[in-house]
Simulated scan of single mutants.
Amino acid sequence: MTDLIPPADDAPADDARADGAQADGAGGLDAARRIAAAHTSASRDLEAFLRRVPATPTAADVAEYAALLSREDAVRADRAAAADAAGLATPSLGTER
Rank of each mutant, 00 (worst) to 15 (best):
H39G: 01
G20R: 07
L50W: 05
P91V: 07
A85S: 12
T40L: 10
S43C: 09
R76V: 00
L88P: 00
A77V: 06
T58H: 01
A66G: 03
L46A: 06
R51T: 06
I35A: 01
D61M: 06
D19K: 03
A21C: 09
I35K: 02
E72D: 11
T2R: 12
A80P: 00
R97L: 14
A86H: 02
F49L: 07
A55F: 08
G25L: 03
P6I: 03
L68S: 07
T56E: 15
P57D: 03
A81S: 12
T58K: 01
A21E: 14
A89V: 08
A77R: 12
E72S: 11
A89Y: 02
G87I: 06
V75T: 11
T2L: 11
S70E: 12
A89M: 07
A59R: 10
I35W: 01
R17F: 09
A37H: 05
A32D: 06
L68W: 10
A85M: 05
H39M: 06
L93D: 12
R51A: 09
D3I: 10
T2Y: 09
T90M: 08
A59W: 01
A42H: 02
L29W: 09
S41A: 15
A38C: 02
D14A: 12
L50Y: 08
A37F: 06
A18E: 12
D24H: 11
D61R: 03
A16M: 15
R33Q: 08
A13Y: 06
V62D: 03
D19R: 04
A63F: 00
S43P: 00
G87D: 04
L69W: 12
T40D: 13
T95K: 08
R52S: 14
E96M: 08
D10L: 06
A77P: 00
R17Q: 15
V53G: 03
D45Y: 01
A42Y: 04
R51G: 09
L88F: 12
E96T: 14
R52C: 04
S92H: 07
A85I: 02
A21T: 15
R79A: 06
D9H: 14
S41I: 10
R17L: 15
R79P: 00
D15P: 03
A55P: 00
A13N: 08
A63C: 01
A66H: 06
G20A: 09
A32G: 07
A81L: 12
L68E: 04
A31S: 05
E96N: 12
V75Q: 06
D84I: 14
A26L: 03
L69D: 15
R76A: 10
D73Y: 02
D19W: 05
E96S: 13
T40Q: 12
E64K: 09
H39F: 09
L46P: 10
G20D: 07
A83H: 12
F49N: 04
A55W: 03
S41K: 15
A80C: 01
E47R: 11
L50S: 13
S92Q: 02
A74G: 12
V75D: 05
